[in-house]
Design a protein around this nucleic acid. Structure first.
Lengths: 193, 193
DNA sequence: ACCTTATCAGAATGCTCATTCTGTATTACA
DNA sequence: TGTAATACAGAATGAGCATTCTGATAAGGT
């Protein structure tokens, strides 16, 4: 019947996500999106709605792909092994080239990016799910006497989550060595308990 | 000869700093500045240059007033006492009402706010000065056997500086209790050594 | 080959913003 | 008291942005 789309929406969304990750919602203009995605301006609006909708889809994809990937260790292991593997993964990711953008999720919260209520809800439930996972692993580790029992599990979970946020949000120009050192501190702390 | 200024540039600058601190460079418009400062638009340009110049002056004032104030403990004490007093001060500041804006300096770096080379230079020297102070106090504390000697002083200084940044940059809506708990973790860590 | 429908390129719209301009009001000093 | 210089209020300018429109182009299905 009609002309077929010359681009794959999934691929375009992936690239849009990377651009939003690198530049943030405000800094990234539709001009740049059109230019870098290689897709016609009007086609973008037809396919995704508008800039905010495209951002929210990117955020959703980030949560499903990047954020979930980062906490696989918490699902694959139990107790202290899960915690150290989790921190180790953050430490390793810092060495990668595209890891100097911080976290799209926390960056967007900090920048107060405009978001629909449902998008904001998804964001917070994802964060809470991570917190719950951490909590479970800490409780396991304490039960196995692999983790200092004097700390409240909730506080310790918040502490570790905050540390990972710190690692992600610290820019490379502040010294990548510093960041891996911090990761080592945390790992050493967990190991020491 | 001529009409006198009806406002005090110092007071206006102080208020501008607070506004930039609350909202950031991009979000804060000249419209808002004119409205909240109660000063004529053209008078602002006459007195301070333009928006970026006004921001840089605000940043300079922040460094001189707020940032310096926060590290007084590092200058007034020595060794471990300085470190715990420093962390304690951050912990106390978190309880205050206006402490939920993060740090103007690190927020601006993160948001990639446009800045002249000299402004950026001032920012970095201020940060380095803090780092140096921390380093000196850690070296003293290690010499007095008040601080775990197995840690490299530079790494430990970077660690503590990163923690304070984390405390300041974590928004109140993520739970103030969580943040004070984290501060307590750090203090307990230093105390334990 | 033809028609339907989608894509495309670029111009047009309307908004917000920083900055500048214009004319008026005000005040210190001679 | 008059005058020169400055503050002031509000309009005007021009750039950048998201979004929409227009007319042309392209490709499937019949």
């Amino acid at each position: 019947m009609a002309r077929t789309r010359s681009f794959d929406p999934e691929q375009v969304l992936q690239q849009a996500m990377m651009l939003f990750w690198q530049q943030g919602f405000e800094r990234l203009s539709m001009e740049q999106l059109v230019k870098h995605l290689g897709v016609n301006r009007y086609s973008l609006y037809e396919t995704f709605g508008n800039k905010q909708a495209l951002f929210e889809l990117s955020l959703q994809r980030y949560i499903a792909v990047v954020f979930e990937f980062m906490q696989m260790p918490l699902k694959e292991h139990k107790g202290k092994a899960a915690l150290t593997a989790f921190c180790q993964k953050f430490r390793d990711q810092l060495q990668r080239t595209n890891a100097n953008n911080g976290c799209l999720m926390f960056n967007s919260l900090q920048a107060k990016t405009p978001m629909s209520d449902t998008a904001r809800q998804n964001l917070h439930t994802a964060i809470e799910k991570q917190q719950t996972l951490l909590l479970q692993r800490i409780i396991e580790a304490q039960a196995a006497n692999e983790f200092n029992r004097r700390f409240e599990p909730e506080a310790a979970a918040q502490f570790i989550a905050a540390q990972t946020r710190l690692l992600l949000n610290t820019r490379r120009d502040q010294g990548i060595e510093a960041m891996t050192t911090i990761a080592d501190f945390i790992i050493a702390d967990i190991e020491a308990w």
